[in-house]
Design a protein around this nucleic acid. Structure first.
Length: 159
DNA sequence: GCCAACGTTGGC
DNA sequence: GCCAACGTTGGC
């Protein structure tokens, strides 16, 4: 292995796919499908590598928070929901021989000892540059720096 | 290529 | 439910 493990954060609306839903899946593995943003697509397709670790974040929740840690277990491959006309994420412009959208497989590894709410992240020194905290940041897949990762894990451990 | 209109995200 | 911020679309 020449490359360092990298870190990411994915958002999910509490009501559509929660950490508990994730944890209850067979093998705790899911396809991270339905992403329809090119910046996020590029990360799913090109950058997220097997073994990378991923914070799982609840949006539209009370409170919004990072709640668990997942791992990339399969690297980018075409998003089948884009090919299915009955699926809400169907995209007629995406063809199996020239797919527009990609997924990775994620496996739920462990819940944080306690959820870390957005408000707490905002108050934490060292996280000022975190993508999640930038004004207007809406990316549903985003990079997390090693320093940010460590800071947040320590916060969760402190209890 | 510009940019107004529109749809979506997501915190509050 | 509101609305600011953002990305995409499409007329010109």
């Amino acid at each position: 292995m020449t490359s360092e493990r990298r870190y990411w954060l994915v958002k999910s609306e509490l009501s559509s796919f929660s950490w508990d839903d994730f944890w209850a899946l067979p093998k705790r593995v899911t396809h991270w499908d339905g992403v329809r943003n090119y910046q996020a697509r590029n990360m799913l397709r090109d950058e997220m590598k097997k073994g990378d670790l991923v914070f799982f974040y609840h949006s539209s929740a009370e409170p919004t928070a990072i709640v668990g840690i997942a791992e990339v277990v399969r690297e980018g491959y075409p998003d089948a929901t884009a090919f299915d006309s009955r699926d809400s994420h169907f995209d007629s412009k995406s063809k199996p021989d020239k797919p527009s959208w990609f997924v990775v497989d994620l496996k739920a590894r462990k819940p944080l000892r306690r959820p870390i709410a957005l408000a707490e992240l905002r108050q934490t020194r060292g996280l000022e540059k975190m993508t999640l905290l930038q004004k207007g940041s809406r990316l549903s897949v985003q990079p997390v720096s090693p320093g940010e990762w460590e800071t947040i894990c320590e916060l969760a451990e402190k209890g």
